[in-house]
């Protein structure tokens, strides 16, 4: 039995369903009753009852790709802030392509405090802090672009169903967009103007993540902005 309508806003503690269902994300089960544990929109599936949270923080998960900032350099690795309650570590052996020799190699030559990296989480559980790697293609130090921060809850919306939203953004703004699962997004485009447009679109998506028909609305917005910009350019040229 369901107690709400699909996609209605629910608050922590709301009784969502009773019966033979599976408690999905942001819910918990007590006996046969499923309750919400976060503020969000309820989604009733065939078997699973879940809540799409409106605000969350990032809890690392093995295999996630994240954008992090180097906070400290140790003897054999780096401490990385990945916008999560847990600080991540990047070991020298996971960053260098050659055997690491403590006596000779100066780690700050590769990555220093303040540098941004695109990395993958290779280990994390309740007892150990997340461990990162940048030894795979596409990963590594970030050298150009702009960073936007959104709530990690909005990341699935920014990617969209079958990556529809993110592909549309890339196509319309002509920017390269790298999404970290931890809510940090890297945008690098042909000009700062293009990047600004992409940032504006992403912020709008984050703000209106819980509304429907968003992809079309964002497309429309970007096209309008582009039109307005071209007009301005023409006026300047005249």
């Amino acid at each position: 039995m369901f107690f709400f309508e699909n996609r209605q806003v629910v608050t922590p503690g709301d009784l969502l369903a009773e019966g033979d269902y599976i408690a999905g994300n942001n819910t918990y089960k007590e006996g046969s009753k499923i309750y919400a544990s976060r503020l969000g929109l309820v989604e009733y599936g065939e078997k699973v009852v879940q809540v799409v949270a409106l605000n969350t923080f990032y809890i690392p998960s093995v295999g996630d790709q994240v954008i992090g900032k180097i906070e400290d350099v140790n003897i054999n690795g780096w401490v990385v802030n990945i916008n999560s309650p847990y600080k991540a570590t990047l070991r020298a052996s996971e960053a260098l392509n050659k055997p690491y020799r403590q006596q000779k190699d100066d780690l700050t030559r590769f990555l220093d405090v303040g540098d941004l990296i695109f990395a993958k989480i290779i280990a994390f559980d309740r007892t150990i802090d997340p461990v990162l790697t940048i030894k795979e293609p596409g990963l590594g130090k970030i050298t150009q672009g702009q960073i936007v921060k959104v709530s990690p809850a909005k990341i699935p919306r920014i990617i969209g169903r079958k990556a529809s939203m993110i592909n549309m953004l890339k196509r319309e703004t002509e920017c390269k967009i790298t999404v970290g699962q931890n809510g940090i997004i890297l945008i690098s485009g042909p000009s700062p103007e293009h990047e600004r447009l992409a940032i504006m679109a992403i912020e709008k998506i984050a703000q209106e993540a819980h509304t429907s028909g968003l992809t079309d609305r964002i497309t429309e917005m970007i096209r309008k902005e582009k039109g307005a910009r071209n007009e301005r350019k023409d006026q300047v040229n005249k």
Partner: peptide, 11 residues
């Protein structure tokens, strides 16, 4: 707490 997105059993 609810605004911060911290999972809670109830308000």
């Amino acid at each position: 707490l609810a605004d911060a997105g911290i999972p809670m059993r109830d308000l």
